[in-house]
Amino acid sequence: MKIAISVQKATFDTEAEQRRLTAGRLDVGAVVSFTGRVRDANERPDVTALTLEHFPGMTEKSLHEIALEAGERWTLQAVTIIHRVGRLEPGDAIVLVMTASPHRRAAFEACDFIMDYLKTRAPFWKKEHTDSGSYWVSERPSDREAAKRWELS
């Protein structure tokens, strides 16, 4: 399985990433791609920007581990995870998860799994900026519930 991890300030080009993911491979039957974007309304209705902080070193390691775990659960040929950090504005892409597999089900489920684990395990924190001030975003119980779906009994 080819794993590509990047934590970066710059934006990403989904099409270029997909070409990179499948370069030279004719056995990839399915590519699933998820892009997360910054919304203009979250905990308060007038989000003008957000700042993403992370824990360098641990972040890359945890994303790599999540990709490896996905590779153990599904037949995957490649995984790309790109997460942006720094200052972002509404409409900006913030995260890209792309999975490649011979058949669609594995790619769909693995992409879903990676996002759920990323949201509950990878050390990123969002601070939202609004006209009425800035605040750190709280965790969502729904994210934890979503991650629990994948627990192996």
Binding site: F55, M58, V95, L118, K119, A122, F124, W136, V137
Partner: peptide, 23 residues
């Protein structure tokens, strides 16, 4: 990631942080 009971040694780097909110 480490829990309260996790053993540590001199020179270890410890970090405390709030619940994560990326993605």
């Amino acid at each position: 990631m480490s829990q309260d009971g996790a053993a540590i040694s001199p020179g270890d780097e410890i970090a405390f942080f709030p619940p994560v909110t990326g993605g």
